[in-house]
């Protein structure tokens, strides 16, 4: 991890200045390249393989009607929704991890995703029209985030209480979800079980557009809060000393991170582990800590979901696994590895 020289270049005009990290830039460009390859493969591979040449032809409007249906109607929205969900989850996870100063934090750990799962399953089991599902999941995520926040608030928000309250509520939501799965009709329960793992099966442009709107609003909001996030990661006292409006900034960050997770869950169901692993991978690759790794966390998250979904589609073809099974297979060992590392006594002194 160490020993790699981070090269940085100041970029300045009269009204604008940044310190550009070349390694971050390289990681982002690399992720974009992998993402493009993954998109191409996602669109090309499947039960009816379409050669890349025909893919290109279709995209410029010169393909056959079947190809166009498969690519533009089925595979492209699926790839793009995967990308968008992964980006949202990567950013959400990095914000939560930095804010509560705990590498094990993520929207799935602190109850946001749990609330969305509960409302989503309720909708599927109680037989509401399927079109309501994303809305219900979104409302569930936002409501549970608000509940966690309200219960953790005591004259101010302590990140530690936020995590504890979140874990407790996540358990309660999981109990509610289990109850619904036990009492539900078998066919509904099966659909709910697939949705609960997080799945991009059958995703269309209808899931894509709300997600894009969410990202277009929330990514700039995130960018506006990154400096406060970095200051907050030095602890509350240092943040106050640096002139950060601590409670306002924390509220803004929790809202943004929870909303990002909500949009992702609404589009695809709760895809596990992505919000948790993507920031770690991004930090490893860039050698950066805190908010400066955000662009990399977004791209790594997006590419991760896309690649996992490709694997989920192909590995047992013609059966399509929910993408969440693949992210869990990748994520669970990684989680254990981090737990192992976190529990090791820190040396030095």
């Amino acid at each position: 991890m160490t020993g790699t020289l981070t090269r940085r270049v100041p970029v300045r005009s009269r009204t604008f200045s940044r310190l550009l990290d070349l390694r971050l830039l390289a990681v982002c460009l690399g992720a974009v390249a992998v993402g493009l390859v993954a998109t191409a493969l996602s669109v090309s591979l499947g039960e009816f393989p379409i050669p890349l040449g025909d893919v290109a032809a279709t995209l410029v409007g010169a393909g056959s009607r079947t190809d166009e249906f498969i690519i533009v109607g089925l595979r492209l929205p699926r790839a793009l929704v995967g990308l968008g969900c992964g980006m949202a989850l990567g950013v959400s996870g990095l914000i939560f991890q930095t804010l509560v100063r705990n590498p094990l934090a993520a929207p799935d750990v602190i109850g946001v995703t749990g609330g969305a799962s509960l409302t989503g399953v309720a909708i599927l089991i109680l037989g509401a029209p399927p079109a309501v599902l994303p809305v219900g999941a979104f409302v569930g995520a936002v409501a549970s985030a608000s509940l966690v926040y309200a219960l953790a608030w005591r004259g101010g928000l302590s990140p530690y209480r936020l995590v504890l309250v979140g874990i407790a509520l996540a358990a309660a939501f999981a109990a509610g979800t289990s109850y619904l799965l036990v009492v539900g009709d078998l066919i509904d329960v099966q659909r709910a079980a697939v949705w609960l793992v997080g799945s991009l099966n059958g995703v269309t442009w209808d899931e894509f557009w709300p997600l894009v709107v969410g990202l277009v609003v929330l990514f700039p909001a995130t960018a506006a809060l990154t400096r406060a996030l970095d200051a907050l990661s030095l602890g509350e006292e240092s943040a106050v000393a640096l002139g950060v409006p601590v409670q306002r900034a924390r509220l803004g960050l929790v809202v943004v991170a929870a909303a990002l997770a909500a949009f992702a869950v609404a589009a695809s169901g709760p895809i596990g582990f992505v919000a948790f692993i993507a920031p770690h991978i991004a930090r490893r690759l860039t050698g950066l800590t805190g908010a400066s790794a955000l662009p990399a966390a977004a791209l790594v998250g997006g590419v991760l979901v896309m690649v996992c979904d490709l694997v989920a589609r192909l590995v047992l073809a013609p059966i399509e696994l929910p993408v969440g099974t693949v992210t869990a297979v990748v994520g669970a060992p990684f989680f254990l590895y981090l737990l192992y590392r976190a529990n090791r006594p820190v040396g030095g002194g």
Binding site: S17, A224, D230, G243
Partner: peptide, 11 residues
Amino acid sequence: YPHQSWLQQFS
């Protein structure tokens, strides 16, 4: 931090 703005982050 207190001397910077969103546009000016490394003057």
